[in-house]
Design a protein around this nucleic acid. Structure first.
Lengths: 210, 210
DNA sequence: CACCGACCTGTACATCTGTACACCAATGGC
DNA sequence: GCCATTGGTGTACAGATGTACAGGTCGGTG
């Protein structure tokens, strides 16, 4: 039986990692047992992110995502009842991936090094090697503006960023750093030329000097 | 530099461009002769902005814009051959309107007053009374990411902002201020609660202290 | 072994979309 | 006065889209 009005999916919204891990452990050898494709849901969500990266949110369709994920159309509508569900999962996935990436970045931060330097480096990373990811994230972030149910995801994203930075200074400075950080990203993604590292670093240093 | 406008005009493909231009040049004294509704094109562009504000870029359609502008469907496709043309005009219109607004703001700036204070005020204005406008602008700004022909519009927008701020300090500080300004806007539009004026002002002051 | 209930898929359909284009209307030149 | 030209509009059409849903498959359970 298909649950009629579950929040988003037949699965629970979170913690499918544990469930899928258990089942995967049980049926590791050949094809999956019971659940033929345990993490297909997450794969579809990531395919949605990929589609947004390539053609933009306004061209996000079930069919395109299905093609990108290599699954039939019926599969995407099975896991995501409506397109907004799909978009929501994509946003959540992108935010989670990003925050995790930021955490590992923070973990690898040299305690003795200068924070402004590291932040400038991070900005350039997001505008250079990880530019595609940055573009998607902003698309999804903005797409949430017209979906009240998603705004808290974007909010928590910003908050996580500010908290992370606050860990090295104080709450207010952390917020200011996150604001400047977002600004550099936003202005950077529409230009093909990267900002000067020296200039970016200098701006962070000014904020920290207060 | 603002150059290419003819590309979006309806008669771009037909061959009587020269003839109409000649006649218009010849009968220049009679203003808007032959045009029953001279600024309908601009009205449609503004209606497009309105539609984006209400339902988002991904739901921007000819029909919706026509309804919002109070014109028949055929009229929107007459002035804007394709949807991208319409979106482009909307972006340009929004950017122009915004830059003009910023200029009048700058013109009314008290020379003796503090810049940080005025900037904080401006941020709160864009997140409060002019929030809808801010939301649209970001939607359009982001939409340009997948339309290379539009990126320069967004770029010039940022540049105009930085130049404006630079007029009160120096080039690099102006850029930094514009980055922080954009950051406050971006983070502000997903929250329903405005940031504290004192905190915003303090962040600008820190940048200016360097 | 039979059966049940999940996972999964192919297809159908109503709707919406962009766009073309054949039409009216007025206006300025003759 | 007439008429060509251009502004303006209603409609038609092919295609894409979201979504429902009837089946199909297969492991688990009694």
């Amino acid at each position: 039986m298909k649950d009629p009005e579950a929040v988003t999916t037949p699965d629970a919204t979170t913690s499918d990692v544990a469930a899928s891990a258990a089942k995967q452990a049980r049926s590791n050898g050949a094809r999956a047992a019971g659940q033929r494709d345990p993490d297909r849901r997450q794969r579809i969500a990531r395919a949605a992110i990929e589609v947004v990266a390539e053609v933009g949110v306004e061209k996000l369709t079930h069919r395109r995502v299905a093609a990108a994920a290599g699954v039939p159309l019926g599969s995407t509508t099975y896991y995501f009842k409506t397109l907004d569900d799909l978009l929501a999962s994509a946003l959540r996935q992108a935010a989670d991936d990003d925050v995790e990436h930021l955490r590992t970045w923070a973990a690898g931060l040299d305690a003795g090094g200068e924070l402004a330097e590291a932040l400038a480096e991070l900005v350039l990373h997001y505008l250079g090697p990880a530019r595609a990811q940055t573009v998607v994230e902003h698309q999804l972030y903005i797409a949430a503006l017209h979906r009240p149910a998603l705004q808290h995801v974007s909010q928590e994203w910003d908050t996580a960023l500010a908290d992370l930075f606050a860990g090295y200074t104080d709450a207010e400075t952390g917020r200011a750093l996150s604001v400047l950080f977002c600004g550099w990203q936003l202005q950077g993604i529409v230009r093909e030329q990267l900002p000067e590292r020296r200039e970016v670093e200098a701006s962070f240093r000014r904020l920290l000097a207060g």
